[in-house]
């Protein structure tokens, strides 16, 4: 049995649009170890959500396709798996939760029915047992008065409670992998803290590996063990979470960290407002092939080579890889 439950290699996912073919994911590789929490972080359009949808083969076939690459789950190739087999996998061995629970819950079914439905489908148990399981799951995600809540509809629940229901449903069949796409972005901060804490506790209990997709570096820092940073459809850096935050090596990762206002740094004197460091420019359009490094036009370290030659992922040791030609200069510069 391999240590990795999920292995993604050179994944390329493309969409046909009126402007041409969008290379949303452009050669991304990463591994997920059993029981691990992996963060995928990046800004809008970097391909992080499309990566998640590709793993679950949820790319709408009318517009998009996995153009190349391999996704292995427990050694089994998912890119060529039949749709029926994929259906047996989704919600059972690989589950997903989304940003807005209201759009993924059925408004006309009670939450108990929705959770039980999944259990009946994948575990082949009778309804009565499935409903018991649903009740157990609501209890597990700490919804008070679980038995009564089984008969409530999604609109009767608060946003935080709906996300708990989504987590209960996702974990109801003991998945090996849980993919969470911006699970707390729509929630208030106090509720976000509750949900993140819950996810980590459940992970300890069930051993489910988590892929946490987010734009929020704070969420990544507090919940993950390893982080993949994406930019314009590519992986630009990967590192254990401490290493990423103490010594980010890609100019984009560094740029992101300097651009965010910080709460945790010693409060400045009242009235002074230090400037945030901007990343100049815009993300590139993904309809044109990018020959060099996608970040080069916005990068202070870029040389002529960066514009024409795509940098390979360089292993700098201790599980830290970075795709940058100028990594020595970046490392030597002050953070």
């Amino acid at each position: 049995m391999s240590a990795n439950i999920l292995e993604v290699r050179d994944l390329q996912t493309q969409f046909n649009t009126l402007d041409g073919v969008v290379r949303a994911v452009d050669g991304v590789s990463f591994d997920l170890a059993r029981g691990e929490t992996l963060g995928i972080v990046g800004e809008s359009g970097c391909g992080k959500s499309v990566t998640a949808l590709s793993i679950l083969r949820l790319i709408p076939p009318e517009t998009g396709r996995i153009a190349a690459g391999s996704i292995k789950f427990e050694g089994e190739e998912l890119t060529t798996l039949g749709e029926e087999e994929m259906k047996r996998l989704r919600g059972h061995r690989i589950s997903m939760i989304f940003q807005e629970p209201m759009t993924s819950l059925n408004p006309v079914l009670t939450v108990g029915t929705q959770i039980a439905e999944n259990v009946v489908r994948h575990m082949g148990v009778p309804w009565r047992a499935a409903r018991e399981r649903a009740c157990e799951m609501l209890d597990l995600v700490r919804i008070a008065d679980a038995r009564r809540r089984l008969d409530e509809y999604p609109h009767q629940l608060s946003g935080g409670m709906r996300q708990r229901v989504m987590i209960a449903m996702a974990l109801s069949c003991d998945p090996q992998v849980l993919i969470a796409d911006e699970p707390t972005t729509a929630l208030d901060v106090t509720i976000q803290a509750q949900i993140l804490q819950l996810m980590l506790e459940l992970k300890e209990k069930t051993g489910t590996a988590i892929v946490l997709i987010t734009h929020d570096l704070g969420v990544v820092a507090e919940t993950t063990e390893r982080v993949v940073v994406m930019y314009a459809g590519r992986k630009v850096e990967e590192a254990p979470v401490e290493a990423l935050f103490t010594e980010p090596l890609h100019p984009y990762t560094r740029g992101l960290m300097r651009a965010i206002p910080r709460l945790d740094i010693e409060a400045d004197a009242a009235g002074t407002r230090p400037r945030l460091q901007e990343i100049p420019g815009l993300v590139p359009r993904l309809t044109q092939p990018i020959p060099g490094c996608a970040f080069a036009p916005r990068c202070g370290f870029a040389t002529g080579r960066c514009a024409v030659e795509s940098p390979p992922l360089l292993d700098v040791g201790a599980g830290h890889t970075v795709a940058c030609w100028e990594v020595d200069r970046v490392r030597a510069s002050a953070l």
Partner: peptide, 26 residues
């Protein structure tokens, strides 16, 4: 205090330092 304690910070060392997380909904 609850709001500040719930806010995430981009610093992995801080993750276990939360004093308390306020429970319940608004």
């Amino acid at each position: 205090e609850a709001l500040l304690s719930a806010a995430t910070a981009p610093d992995p060392k801080r993750r276990r330092q939360r004093k308390h997380i306020v429970q319940g909904d608004v």
